[in-house]
Design a protein around this nucleic acid. Structure first.
Length: 275
DNA sequence: CGCCAGGGGAGCT
DNA sequence: AGCTCCCCTGGC
């Protein structure tokens, strides 16, 4: 196991921030994450966090996954002094990190996310993993399911995933798998493109629009300039930024601020000073 | 039963 | 850019 001391890192916040649907609280202060086919447990006390894996796996995978080399306080410090709403939001979610997750996994996850709520998105994803993901065993000897590969899904009837509760999103996922397997959608290539070009490629997928493409860019490609606007963000911007969100001021890391706002809107008890 | 909302998107003008 | 219609599930 690996022990680290780190600022701006908070497991409950990362877990609830709605970017990783396969992270959950196992027991008090103890979290598990499944990324593609890897399983990890973590535990956090005050300023120290324990990763239950060996040093090598931490260095080559999880360190990057949790973006541990980035100092998030510098993002927060650059928030305009006069913007008390954003100051409050950033303070409230200051332990959130923008994870570097798997591209295919994010495509599927955010196809499922549309017109859907977080609790149900989690259930949908667990359903397809249990049904179509490779069966794995963790260090405790417990079974878990990897994320299903495109090759496992591309040949299914388009409505097959309705039994996993995806509803009308079933065909989006099956068609996306088809695009990946056929090579129409080249994941490796997309990973190397600029934000603008990657987004353009993702928009070609049936069921992927502006918002979903931005989520994929932000959470898989780590394009921090992506600023996904969903119903919550849209309402928040109308309330607090009547003349528009100052994207230019925060050019290059708007996505981080989007997460603070999103998390604050969903879980922060509204303060009077915000209205 | 109807109504509505949930981290939208497609297709059209 | 804006509009309409569409899709499925769960909660009230």
């Amino acid at each position: 196991m690996v022990r680290i001391k780190i600022q701006n890192f908070n497991l409950p916040q990362i877990c609830q921030s709605g970017q990783c649907f396969r992270m959950s609280e196992r027991s008090e202060n103890r979290y598990s994450v499944i990324a593609r086919n890897r399983y990890l447990e973590l535990e956090q006390s005050k300023e120290e966090c324990i990763f239950y894996c060996d040093e090598a796996e931490f260095q080559e995978f999880w360190k990057k996954y949790f973006d541990l080399d980035t100092d998030y306080s510098s993002y927060i410090e650059r928030i305009a002094q006069g913007d008390t709403y954003l100051q409050n939001a950033a303070e409230f979610g200051s332990g959130i990190r923008i994870l570097r997750q798997d591209l295919w996994e994010m495509i599927v996850s955010f196809l499922i996310s549309q017109q859907n709520n977080i609790v149900r998105i989690r259930r949908c994803i667990e359903n397809i993993c249990e049904r179509y993901g490779e069966k794995m065993v963790n260090d405790r000897g417990e079974a878990y399911s990897a994320f299903p590969t495109p090759e496992t899904l591309f040949d299914l009837p388009e409505d097959a995933l309705m039994e996993c509760n995806l509803g009308y999103r079933s065909k989006y996922v099956v068609r996306a798998a088809k695009s990946v397997v056929s090579g129409d959608c080249d994941l490796e290539k997309i990973g190397k493109l600029t934000y603008k070009d990657a987004k353009e490629e993702l928009l070609k997928l049936f069921g992927v629009g502006e918002k979903v493409a931005d989520c994929i860019c932000l959470f898989a490609l780590h394009e921090l300039a992506a600023f996904p606007v969903d119903t919550h963000i849209s309402q928040a911007l109308q309330k607090h930024y009547k003349r528009g969100f100052p994207k230019r001021r925060y050019q290059g890391y708007q996505g981080v601020l989007q997460q603070y706002i999103f998390y604050y809107e969903l879980f922060g008890g509204r303060k009077n000073s915000d209205r």
